[in-house]
Design a protein around this nucleic acid. Structure first.
Ligand SMILES: [Mn+2]
Ligand SMILES: [Mn+2]
Ligand SMILES: [Zn+2]
Ligand SMILES: [Zn+2]
Lengths: 124, 124
DNA sequence: TTTGTTATTGATAACCAATATCATTAAATT
DNA sequence: AATTTAATGATATTGGTTATCAATAACAAA
């Protein structure tokens, strides 16, 4: 059994938490850091707190363009990514996506990653 | 109109081409380099030739675990990734995957990325 | 063939996201 | 208040990848 790791409620933890928890734009650690810079927080702490939140199941990660982005929406969902403005948006995962799962090979599916890449209506 | 960039047929180009063209295991640049090491090829050249082949449409890229992997299968297809042995395998893209496209928002889809993560039968 | 042009090469410096190190600080407990 | 120790911030280090550049070799022209 796994019990949730104890965390101290530091000023920095609250800062990072509040900066990411309501976001829908999947920011990078650097972006969060830049926004919290005036507080005097260190970049390493931003990375550490984001990693801790992922470990605690509060955040999910999305890899894009060789950078890890953070997502407070942890339930299964798909993404659309605009190649012009690089905006990553959430979109509902098709309900019948499990019908598409690889039924063969005895592959045990844990996670589905579905992303549409293209151009958003703003950038067309 | 875009005409294909001229390439010189160097010994190194042939080496990299032959090392990747029939592979189904999505190797990294480092892996290709290690296999071609006895030829005396430089690591930068391996990266350059792989990038050139991507530019020419001969290879596709697959990002996994903070590394770029190269794929001679350039037609649209999905992947299954084993989190134990890290093996990336090709799988057919569901025929009706376009029915799942985001019809809303006027998003112009260029590319679909679909990956199942889990445990392959070998590793269970 | 020989010559000239220039894309390509290999060594390596530089880049950049991310992690490791470590002395100091400050939560949490006693 | 004293004690314990997780967390912090500065910064060194790591690892994948790209940039730089003098030397080389593919290709075209003569
Ligand atoms: Mn999301
Ligand atoms: Mn593939
Ligand atoms: Zn856009
Ligand atoms: Zn496996």
């Amino acid at each position: 059994m796994s019990t949730k790791k104890l965390r101290r409620y530091t000023k920095q933890r609250r800062l990072v938490h509040d900066a990411i928890i309501n976001r829908t734009d999947h920011p990078t650690a650097k972006e969060i850091f830049n926004e919290l810079k005036p507080s005097g927080i260190g970049i390493a702490t931003v990375y550490r707190q984001l990693a801790a939140m992922v470990e605690d199941g509060i955040l999910a990660t999305v890899d894009y363009d060789s950078e890890t982005r953070y997502d407070p929406l942890t339930s299964p969902h798909a993404h659309i990514v605009c190649s012009v403005c690089n905006r990553i948006s959430d979109i509902e995962l098709p309900r019948d996506v499990n019908d598409l799962a690889p039924e063969n090979l005895g592959f045990e599916v844990n996670e589905i990653e579905l992303t549409w890449k293209g151009i958003c209506n703003n950038c067309q």
